[in-house]
Design a protein around this nucleic acid. Sequence first.
DNA 1: CTAATAATTTAGGTTCGCCTAAATCCGCGA
DNA 2: TCGCGGATTTAGGCGAACCTAAATTATTAG
Lengths: 231, 231
Amino acid sequence: MPARRNPAASSESVDNYLKAILALSGPEERRVASTSLAARLGVAPASVTNMLQKLGAAPSPLVEYERHHGVLLSPAGRRRALEVLRHHRLIETFLYELLDYPIEEVHAEAERLEHFISERFEERIAAKLGHPKFDPHGHCIPAMDGKMPKQKSVSLTDVEHEGAFVVDSVSDWDAPLLKRLKARGIAPGVRLRTRRRTPDDDYAVSLGNSSRILHLSPDAAGAIRLCSVHH
Amino acid sequence: MPARRNPAASSESVDNYLKAILALSGPEERRVASTSLAARLGVAPASVTNMLQKLGAAPSPLVEYERHHGVLLSPAGRRRALEVLRHHRLIETFLYELLDYPIEEVHAEAERLEHFISERFEERIAAKLGHPKFDPHGHCIPAMDGKMPKQKSVSLTDVEHEGAFVVDSVSDWDAPLLKRLKARGIAPGVRLRTRRRTPDDDYAVSLGNSSRILHLSPDAAGAIRLCSVHH
DNA sequence: CTAATAATTTAGGTTCGCCTAAATCCGCGA
DNA sequence: TCGCGGATTTAGGCGAACCTAAATTATTAG
């Protein structure tokens, strides 16, 4: 008989759904709508529904899915998602630190490799890197037990008034955008001052001690997360 | 319209067919029978026929296939096969040299990753390793332009002095002998060091890093072909 | 409260890579 | 030359993951 495997077994595709749910459900673990998943994954909404039904109906489900009410990771699903995220961020760090990749290329490569590396590979690069806690974008790397300190940072879009911040991370979702921001000097660790927001969709900031003002689009602003530098 | 891709586009599966054909057609580039491919790939013969038909009928074919007469790599197919082989051997070297993998684990990991690394990854690990010419098993790594010096193997009976080798193949015409050798740890891929030959018909070798010495009969020695290891 | 609109699901179809079972082809011995 | 057996191909299917188009359900404005 043709060895049929567990329908909810991890596959590249399943991994990507789990990662997307993890990302979209945020720290409060909100339920995630299929439309947002579809947008994020670049597939048709109907495909999402299909997949979620499969993932939810498996003997040991990876998600908790209810028709018309979005989806949530099950404990097993969350575990797997965090493992893949750990892979992703470790690989990014590895490519950047040990293979001298340009920062804007690490995401795409990690995105492919994260699904295929073994436990041993994970363990070895983590060791070579000295068990890093942050990837080159400033994102926190989940520990092996799946725990991850919640990062408290704000999106630049949420900041309405003047203030001094440090760039905590820049979303690595959109490589060209990442590159453009880098070219303008915006990268993790950089100090940044916000201006009061007058026109609603113009984000004006200045970098370091410079008084030169940069104007960012809402898209760009949305990709930037900040930590305040008071006290 | 649903962006249908080139039917002969490279995929993990296609890569594996090409690799297998490359391996089985040998240095003289013999035509390869579907049965041997099926055996090597662990799939049904019918599946092989299917795949070969697709690969051969594509706009730019990767193989030259004729029904009932086996298959041969096209120039493009050979190029791709050598690229994947280069990936495989570079990755093995990388895992062994830079990530301190145990030698017996490098193959399985490389087998998965070879399909997914980018040109940049290839170039970077090659650079870090100093553009190695041989993998940790002693196999030659194809150059980027696809050229690869043909490896010439020697019979153990022709080796008179000490040296480090890799078992290239063990003659299979004498099954019991083959089995006995395997039981003693001698099989293709195994690293083997020869001793100086003092009595004319005693072949003394040791395996891997072990210092234990095995004594082989002329018959056994004649069945073993070796490649030298140029680290 | 109802109707329009937006989100979601169902139904039916595709490609890929694999499988089994049933032809068919080819070379070799009688 | 005939026919037999092994090698190979054809025919018909399956599951995964995707798609479009056509329901259906939820939400929200009037």
